[in-house]
């Protein structure tokens, strides 16, 4: 493994074509830094993407890269991973690419637990096609294709991932360097399908859609940063916490001063709590929400294959099939 590489070594020479001020810039920085910090080997790392603003990502990272077609990156990445399981394969997708046109492939990549690091840039809008509402847009989102406001129920990336049987789900904010670093590091280290939802601000078509969560003034009251084994505390003075309401079978906010014992300790292997955490809105949960390793798809694929994909018999030995007969030369 190469060492001593910096974020700069993972930055390609290509001119970046995202809008000035786009949240993608911050994500790119965090990813290249995570690659350097994680000791990634550029020759052995591949970024695969679909279509959309996020999908330009592979051009800007100095590793192998494949910019494929809309929604299909997880499928291409699955074939690549089966062909060469030693590669570190990252998939970059967006809310439209990953949850609308490519929802099926994301579902199956997650339930198979193929070792893919999947970054889902969620800006709740279609950017590259100029601003139509997306599958994560909130009800009432006005856009060129929904002038009276969208009426469809948005999909929750977290519920989707956990419902699909995903083994890793984390959430981060594009501009939160520390949070990004922690979740990317965890995703990088995870063996299996890891889905990281990154709240990404589209400054042109959906400016400030996450403002309530990300604004400095209100952030502390709106962000719950999770650490495995630590109590779920938030607020400016960490004076509020998340507890469990057994009557309504749901999470609720409790006062950390008066009811310290009622505050849940984050257990990232607890699927039932994870399902509730992904739906919290105030505060919204960040960090690794669920992590429960299991054997990967490619491990089982190779374990089951009698020759581990190696050629141990020639077709010449098999060509005659179960029964053959010989026609002798005449005379």
């Amino acid at each position: 493994m190469r060492t001593g590489l910096t974020a700069k070594d993972f930055t390609s020479s290509q001119e970046i074509r995202w809008c000035p001020g786009c949240g993608d810039y911050a994500i790119l920085k965090s990813v290249t830094k995570a690659l350097a910090d994680g000791g990634a080997d550029p020759d052995n790392t591949v970024f695969v993407s679909g279509i959309g603003c996020a999908a330009r990502f592979p051009y800007y990272v100095e590793t192998y890269g494949f910019h494929t077609i809309h929604g299909r990156a997880p499928a291409v990445a699955t074939g690549l991973k089966l062909a060469n399981p030693d590669l570190a394969v990252w998939v970059v997708t967006g809310d439209g690419d990953g949850l609308s046109i490519g929802g099926n492939h994301l579902l199956h990549a997650l339930r198979r637990n193929t070792d893919l690091k999947i970054l889902l840039f969620n800006n709740e809008i279609y950017g590259l096609t100029k601003g139509q509402y997306s599958p994560t847009s909130r009800i009432g989102t006005t856009s060129p294709s929904s002038p009276a406001g969208s009426v469809d129920m948005p999909v929750s990336p977290g519920q989707f991932a956990l419902g699909a049987g995903g083994r890793f789900f984390a959430r981060a904010i594009d501009t939160d360097k520390r949070g990004m670093a922690e979740t990317l590091e965890a995703a990088h280290a995870f063996e299996g399908a890891s889905l990281v939802e990154i709240l990404q601000n589209c400054i042109v078509y959906n400016q400030d859609v996450f403002a309530a969560v990300t604004d400095r003034a209100t952030a502390a009251e709106h962000q719950l940063h999770l650490t495995h084994g630590e109590p779920m505390l938030f607020g400016k003075n960490r004076d509020q916490g998340i507890g469990f309401d057994p009557e309504r079978f749901t999470l609720h906010i409790v006062d950390a001063q008066t009811s310290p014992d009622a505050i849940l300790v984050h257990d990232e292997t607890n699927l039932a709590v994870a399902r509730m955490l992904v739906d919290l809105t105030i505060p919204m949960a960040f960090g690794v929400i669920y992590r429960q390793p299991a054997r990967t798809y490619e491990d089982d694929f190779y374990a089951q294959h009698p020759t581990k994909m190696k050629r141990e018999r020639s077709v010449a030995d098999l060509i005659a099939g179960p029964s053959s007969w010989r026609v002798p030369k005449a005379g």
Binding site: T68, K81, L82, A83
Partner: peptide, 13 residues
């Protein structure tokens, strides 16, 4: 679609 895309991924690999 996934079938051909995975085959493309395999060829890429």
């Amino acid at each position: 679609i996934a079938a051909i895309c995975a085959a493309i991924g395999a060829s890429y690999g």
